[in-house]
Design a binder for these strands. Structure first.
Lengths: 209, 209
DNA sequence: CCGCATCCTCATGGATACTG
DNA sequence: CAGTATCCATGAGGATGCGG
């Protein structure tokens, strides 16, 4: 143990001492959407070894980033502490920074609606989207609901019902639209809309916040 | 080589594929203050192995985060690309996140005025500091100048002259003040001021931006 | 000197099997 | 289900060498 440290009195270095290990920030990303069980994390983070997940959760818990709770069904769930939840700012800034990479995509990458939910919130949070508005996002194999109200954007991974307006396209196009890298007209040359097209303007056409 | 990837179509994962290796973000932190030579980076990042620095710079360059330039004295200097410079948002969010760790300090950590410069800018950037104002910050062994104008906070590591007002204290106190974790009155029980005390109010007493 | 490359040792990460 | 134990592969850290 005795995790390797940079030994620098610097906020970045101290942060990386805490959450800079491989997988740690991805665990935090998963928990941003709510508490999860060990087995759910193991399934969501494809490729992580079981001993590493256990080690990371131990370290994050002793650092005060994550806490073990008793879930609704009685089992142990892992949740972010209030301080851990503040990693949202950092995670969202990474998501925004990655825009030049993401709008190109990359063959072979796995894609999860959970990650799309985090990304849409991060990208739209920096903009003045108007509310209220609701649109369904359909990408190959997945469906999420994006709703904007006075509190900002909310993304639901498993909607109870599909909104009236639905945008269908490749993930790169949806993210390009949310990032402002594509105009709605540009996006609609490679994506399609069912329902009221004008909802897209409400959701995606806001300027920088 | 063939850098290890998470293989996830997620902005966080793609960002960490690019700058998630050990030392990479610390290299970016150093370059936020301006281009540096290889030997300067090696000296600033105490503990990094020479082969690792070379490897990281290669990777960051091929990723488009860093570029090699010809410096003023003719030698090669490393600089952030425009995209790389946008890592400032992420780095500053890490700095803000680390506040609970930093206001306690940690024995044995090295301390550099360059890191204090990054931190002060990150912490004050989220607040409505009034301008113009200028204050010297003296911590054991180091001195920096904090100036605020219409563009926001600027921190100079090697000032050409010392400002009229100088705050002297431990780094933890200065950061606690900048983070809003300490009031000016609280800070002054363990720090001292030469010159016009009211300047501190102008610089540090702004609310959230 | 500066800017690395090589070599060696050890810590960390990854895959799989196994257990309370 | 929620981890531990084990073993192998990879990456980090440190010393040294070497060409420009």
């Amino acid at each position: 143990m005795a995790a390797r440290s940079y030994n620098q009195y610097c906020g970045l270095a101290r942060s990386l001492d805490t959450v800079g290990d491989r997988w740690s920030l991805l665990i935090a990303r998963e928990l941003l959407l709510g508490p999860m069980r060990y087995s759910e994390l193991l399934a969501a983070l494809d490729g992580i070894a079981t001993n590493l997940l256990a080690d990371r959760l131990r370290n994050l818990e002793s650092a005060g980033v994550v806490e073990r709770q008793v879930g609704e069904t009685g089992g142990v769930v892992y949740a972010l502490t209030p301080w851990g939840a503040q990693l949202r700012e950092t995670i969202e800034s990474f998501v925004r920074w990655s825009t030049p990479l993401m709008i190109r995509g990359r063959a072979g990458d796995a894609s999860e609606p959970r990650w799309l939910a985090v990304a849409l919130r991060a990208l739209l949070h920096a903009r003045t989207a108007r509310w209220p508005a609701e649109v369904g996002i359909e990408v190959p194999g997945h469906f999420v609901t994006l709703r904007i109200d006075e509190d900002g954007p909310h993304v639901t991974v498993q909607p109870d019902q599909r909104p009236d307006t639905i945008l269908t396209g490749e993930p790169e196009v949806v993210l390009g639209l949310a990032a402002g890298a594509l105009t709605i007209d540009q996006a609609l040359t490679v994506a399609s809309v069912q329902g009221d097209r004008r909802v897209l303007t409400t959701v995606f056409a806001g300027g920088p916040a």
